[in-house]
Nucleic acid binder design. Sequence first.
DNA 1: GACAGCATGTAATGAGTTACATGATTAA
DNA 2: TTAATCATGTAACTCATTACATGCTGTC
Lengths: 213, 213
Amino acid sequence: MSRRLAKLTTTSYALLGLMAIRPWTGYELAKQMDRNRAWPRASSKVYEEPKKLVDQGLARASREMTGERPRTVYSITPKGRRALARWLDQPGAGPVLEFEQILKVFFAEHGSKQGLLTNLHAAKAWSRQRVEENVAIGQAYLEGRGPFPERLAVILLTATFMSDFARLVGQWADWAESVVAGWPSDLSKAEPEMTALTALVDKDRAYVEAPRP
Amino acid sequence: MSRRLAKLTTTSYALLGLMAIRPWTGYELAKQMDRNRAWPRASSKVYEEPKKLVDQGLARASREMTGERPRTVYSITPKGRRALARWLDQPGAGPVLEFEQILKVFFAEHGSKQGLLTNLHAAKAWSRQRVEENVAIGQAYLEGRGPFPERLAVILLTATFMSDFARLVGQWADWAESVVAGWPSDLSKAEPEMTALTALVDKDRAYVEAPRP
DNA sequence: GACAGCATGTAATGAGTTACATGATTAA
DNA sequence: TTAATCATGTAACTCATTACATGCTGTC
């Protein structure tokens, strides 16, 4: 069956965007999507999706050989560049977060205190791992070894967010752990920290009331 | 065909967790999932999924009537509580973020400067909206009007993260906007702010090197 | 008594993941 | 020379979304 009329998804455009930088093989696209934390997708999807772009004339596929084994190199077409530019000019969707660890924290009273601490610990581990990766990447750029140095200005914008986010997770988990440490084993008896609630609302209010920069 | 052997997903457990708090109708579950920012799902899914729980004996469905129209009220079973407790004790997956706006920022050089600013503005709008909602909810709790006040201790843990996250998005977009303001129309000519890169790496390094609390 | 919006779903479709298969390359 | 890992996909399946349908309720 034809993919001719299939509508493009955000995933399609993410791949088209990569192709606008340079041509890539399927494997390279998969690796690149992995690094780009803003739109994570399974690599099988990354191998599949570019075919749609080719069907619509937005990309070209060229078959190459590694020994006996064929591989595909994808590159963007002028029509693809125009489609990409149109997409980039439209406002995109806001962040969507899926966070299983925090979901478990939300229902913690129906499990054990140990389970709650386990999940906070897992969040800290995730954060530390990410931040360590980020240090390595940042260090590489500082030493002039980072990939696509000509794109650094834009990369720095997004990396700043991803980095802040990774630290936020860890700092939150640290704080939550210290709060939970004082709770009884029967979590349904835990007392809320009203000062934390007040502080939270104050911070939020200060933010919405701050003069627009 | 039977759903008898279907494996439970995180979505299933999210619903089971809600049922552990009290019985809900399908519509109430859908609304509640909407509010719980940690695991967003389309409401049609929320109507569908509990059937799996009933098939496995983890929940009970009772048919009620609103006039001529039937509706279903779901409640958890003892077996369901045990399954939930087991799930809660396992470490969950780390956060997964889908952020289309930032994806567009990442590819900004292939669009216009105006498009880039449009997306930063959209991110700010998203943030402001969320924070305003959070203020209203927090205010309600401060006044003793919040739902499930007996769960406040745990709610406060997760709300703190979601609130910090919403503010992070806005503060990042504010900063990015001020950086981009100084860029030329041809975004491929934009100069990276090396001081921002240094600051970023320093922050990350300070975080990983800080003594574990 | 009609219209808007709340409430309660089902159906069709498609996006995405997990599992699998296998060739090429490198390190031991 | 074998094992591990990198590279390149395909197939089967399921999760999830969008679109639709329609009853109920309050209000003008």
